[in-house]
Amino acid sequence: MANSKLYKGSLTTIILKLLNDNQKMYGYEITQKVKALTNGELNITEGALYPSLHKLEAEGLLDVEVTKVDNRLRKYYKLTEKGTKETSNKLNELQAYIKTIQALVNSNFSLE
């Protein structure tokens, strides 16, 4: 995606939605999943992903589980009960926003 600013406002919703669908995920997995689901159109940067994950964790929307995988520690994130509720709120908000933008983009602007 040429303009990464466009997805930044929706990053938390994207993370919450992915965790809602996949139970638990780790940071790298999230970046790869987004890339795969969007055929490489959307590339979540590391510098944006981790602060968002840490913020969501601090807000009590995510829970953390540290497990040993392949001889190294891996930090998994999963939704808390509060996080699951927030996911549906955020998704509704995003869908309403997409509809509004679509209405704006599809309308015929006239200068007359």
Binding site: T45, G47, A58
Partner: peptide
């Protein structure tokens, strides 16, 4: 390089802010 020009420092700073906010809350 994928972590941007500030490397890990911005990430640590934002993690600290998130933790601070959590404790205050």
């Amino acid at each position: 390089k994928k972590f941007g020009v500030f490397g890990f420092s911005e990430l640590v700073e934002q993690k600290t802010n998130a933790l601070d906010k959590y404790y205050r809350k």
